[in-house]
Amino acid sequence: QTVMRCSHQLPPAHHIAKVVDRWAAEVEKLSEGELDVQVFGADSLVGARDNIVSTAKGDIECAFSLNFQWGKTLPIMNVTVAPFAFGDIEIWKKWPTSEAAAFLEEKLLEKGVKNVVWMFQTNTSVFTTKGEPLVKPEDFKGLKIRGLTPPFDAALAALGATPTAMPGSEVYQALATGVVDGAITDVAAAVSRKYYEVQDAFTVVPVLSAYLHGYLNPAFYDGLSDKSKEALKQAGLEASEWAIEASTEAGNAGPDQLREKGVKVHIATPEENAALEAVMRPAFDKAFGEGDADSQKLLDLLGKM
């Protein structure tokens, strides 16, 4: 029996953390017990920042990262952060067997990890604030909004907001007390982190997409039996579907769960989204760096889907 230790950063109750656990059980089952998959969530073994390098180096066999953890290490992983570019769920359903995914898997292997599963996490975000929901670009003017990444912050700045960096553990308190005026987060996270206690206006927008992907140390993967490799492939495809189901459910339930708490929830209309996109997208693209050949090829492949 081969032990495969998998590290990830999500808290145990997160809907995708549960999909990871289910994936681990499926891998064990399909490999008929050849693989013993041990999952260490919530940064308990290796921190979110170290998962990629620790796996590539072989300290652990396997890890999961949110795509933006790749940062400048492999910038192409971040295309989904582009405002409003990946709101369509159909893209995600076709994703695991697409040319685009194969292209990214090739890039990941070149970098030094073997991708085994794609887990779509969200395409439903909320802008939160106190008072009235943030809908039109003008509504953002002069507000301090908790930032995310430099290119996305450029998009916020284009709206006239002041992006403000702070660690995740400080955000709730900062929102409560007004150190920042608002935040952008995944709708499910707005519920689980109880932002509704300290914010009273939420705008649901398909502005950001994110996915968690699981990868193995390539040497470890190469040493596995064909049965184990097949089990990983099969479980990976199944888990992609579970992730879409779980994320869609969490995304759909979020707005109602927020309304139940007595806060204002506004679902942005296509016109309102377009107005935001028109301001945010050019600023994002400029900061993200247009014209990179790999990114362009990925965007072309995505266009074909």
Binding site: M166, E170, Q173, A174, A176, T177, G178, V179
Partner: peptide, 9 residues
């Protein structure tokens, strides 16, 4: 300062 939201910890 913490209570009234002027400062983080």
């Amino acid at each position: 300062g913490i209570y009234f939201g002027v400062f983080t910890a």
